[in-house]
Design a protein around this nucleic acid. Sequence first.
DNA 1: GAGTTTGAAACT
DNA 2: CAGTTTCAAACTC
Length: 778
Amino acid sequence: MDTPDRPRAAAAGGGGFEDSPVFNFINSLSPIPPPKPLDSAHNVQLFKSSDLAPVSSIFASPHVNPAKEYKLPIRENSVQFSRESHSPNSVRTRIGATSSIRMIRCKNIVSENCSITCYLNESNSSKSSQPIQLCGGNAETESDKNQNTDGKKDITTEQDRTDLEFVFLDQRGAEKMDSSQSGNNVCENQPSEQHKDNPGTCDGGYMIAHQTSNDMLSLAPPFEAETQLVNETLETDVFSCKSLLTDGSSDLYIQNSAHDPQLFWAGAVEGSATDYTLQMLPGACQSQMVPNDQNCNKLNELSDCMSMDQNVSSQNLRGMRRRCLFDEKSGAANKGVKNTSVRHSANSVTPRHKTSSSDNNLKALRTPPCALPGIGLHLNALATVPKDKTVPHNDTQSSLNQASNILSDVGSSPSIADPHTVNDDSSQTNMVAHVDGSGQGSPKKKRHKFDNGDDTSCKRCSCKKSKCLKLYCECFHAGVFCSEPCSCQGCLNKPSNMETVISTREQIESRNPLAFAPKVIRTEPGQELADDTNRTPASARHKRGCNCKKSSCLKKYCECYQGGVGCSLSCRCEGCKNAFGRREGVALLSIEEAKHGCDQKNGGVKEETIDNDKQLVIYQDTDLTPAENLLTTPSVVDCSRLLVALPPSSSKRPRSSTKLAGYSSRLEAPLKSDILLSPFESYAEMVLGDGPSNALKGESSPQTSVKPLEHIIVWCLRLFPCLFAVTQRSRSPASHRLLRSWLLSCFTINQGSFALAALFRDELTFYSKVEWLYIIHT
DNA sequence: GAGTTTGAAACT
DNA sequence: CAGTTTCAAACTC
């Protein structure tokens, strides 16, 4: 394990990427490269073959799914902030995970005197990092340099003076940035007219802060060059979180790449893991900034720094999308709300100014709820959704979901919110719109279903006495700010009360670390949503069991039922009749059957139709067991727990054996795939030392020769090849050390698994483009 | 839409 | 940790 220094082995092109033909090729690509069907297909296939990831979604080419394309604007629009609207409150942010990214729009930053040095990747020509001087507030710059160390303090301090609002964006935010469809520009979402013509031009100034420890950051960049950029940036402290915070003079808004600001808290929905992660991380915040206004041109390139070059190719878009999944999900509700507008402006994004002018309040954010930072919140939450609530899901997108779900499984996540995730898919979009339309006049309940779908979307709570600062409040629980749709009274769950909200969350979390964890954790991500789908339903577990007495676990009072999962041994329910699986251990199938399935060790996924319910029962690959064991309640460990029955609504879903087959292959393939396996092995060896390869191959039971932690790592790597790829590309020994230490620390704390999950998820998300490169290179 | 039921969260 | 109270969602009418 202590071999961080080891050379990244053979895998993926062990050589420096920047030197590789692929790298050169990528750099030479025009910002708006033509789609490459073959590549995408290839990529998809590769991923499918792997356990992980749903590459397909990641790399889905825009062309393939036009609908998605126009979706991006939606999300971005979903949250609209006006400049003026930002509240004077300072927000204390936390980094949900290593890769959490903050995007902050700097008001008039350009006009300010501050000089900011950024290393940007020139989209086309200038490849590597070039320092860019931005004008901002001097104070910022200096403060950054001096104050990097303690972001929190700085932030707090700032509160006093502050005009600043901080929102920590998780990767989603980054994704958004990346998401610039046409131009790779941060500005992508900006008014279409402007941007299309001038990809490089942004009217607004945005600052993107990437919060992570320096080390972590260094890890992140797939390529040395990028890494270097980041590191340099960090070193210079040009944009440390502190600096941003410290600069009281400047108005900072949080915005996503789009003009319309969206607030996302890192790990908003997710569980407590985030917190831990943060704590573990070395404190410095790193940031990348994207300037607003005219300077955007230069700054646009920053986005590249964050996640590969968008320039790279159309594939970037895919990556974007994939990353965007979180957002999209979160934005589901928003979509619904703004759906109409979205349609109208399919291509154009609402200028932030519009919003700003109209909304001065944070409420402007209504559409996109803000995920609360920090404590207990994280992305994992993509959640479980009762089938009936779920929105159709696109295969391609599923990749992320899978990953996230898996993680969430592993960890806790948040999701509370659970359910109702929305996908990028065009179909999804339609669905959302449809729903939305129906919901517009519909009562709160109906709206609820959809809103909940989004992890980060507003839950439309109607709290009266809790002030939306207790778990009773769905919004609070989900880590989002209450917004317009809410009918709460005396609500304190607002950006203006950040401190209160955060402290309250901390309090609650300290009491119960799992408080913000999702009630139901799914093993497989988002697939459950699938409409189209064939997607296998995810298996799910309970964070903690239900305690139903009168509802017989047949109503939504039951968390398990609501989450679309069966009750488990961890439940304390009485008279359980959960349609998704009874507590006694038998869901739709008898335990024996389940065990039989496990024994067969088909590994893959088996699909069975249950005549009675027309539900799908899936046996999950037992390979996952090790990790699950760590993360699961002991009581739930047996094979039966892996059973998942789709909610009744799912019965409608068409089941395509084809896709299922694909899925199964995905699960199985990784082990068999030379392409992926090899890298993993090398990585495993690097990290774990000799011998792990077997574990990776599945030849030996993990427990056999690998220590628990190591085993987990191996498992994670199997699940997230991209992580491997990323780490492998990170040449910095420090990166490896950091990764290792981080993993270790994750497990030293309670719920470390959650943190781990968050870590990996973030890595996955953040580096999706790297993945792409990796695939190509391979 | 109002009232009831329910079970989780909060409190003691 | 158990019992009670509070709370807001789910549900019913």
